[in-house]
Amino acid sequence: MTYASWSKDEALLVLSQTRDKPGPVLISLQAIQSVFGFVPTPAVALIAEACNVSRAEVHGVLTFYSDLRTFLLPANHVRVCVAEACQAVGSRELVSGLKSQGVEFDKAFCFGNCALGPSATVNGKLQGRASVDSVVKAIQG
């Protein structure tokens, strides 16, 4: 996934599309992240101004939701489901296996693929009955 590098003009253009929507702060943060890959620090003040709320309020929303980030993701982003249904079919082993292979990943709670676990995503693509091999293979493309 390629993202635009930070530009205030670009950010203002994005916010011109979201600022008038009902409840605009979260939508604005999501829109900024979809363009730049994360929420750059200067965007917080711009969103606050566009939505007519305080910067603290924007910061509060930004830090509440686990999807919203203040940094760019690695080139290969792996997420592993660690919720109950996947635990029942070996997600703990998958997690420790990936760790021992030095694969970096984020933990996730449920992709709604609970009958075909353990589930993982590599760059957004969902895998059912995932294994260390299938994840590594997807990373290598």
């Binding site: 489901c81 919720a83 109950e84 249904a85 996947c86 709670f109 449920c110 709604g112 609970c114 009958a115």
Partner: peptide, 11 residues
Amino acid sequence: DEGDSGTFADR
């Protein structure tokens, strides 16, 4: 917002 593990009917 079907977040419960073990549920996927909504999806």
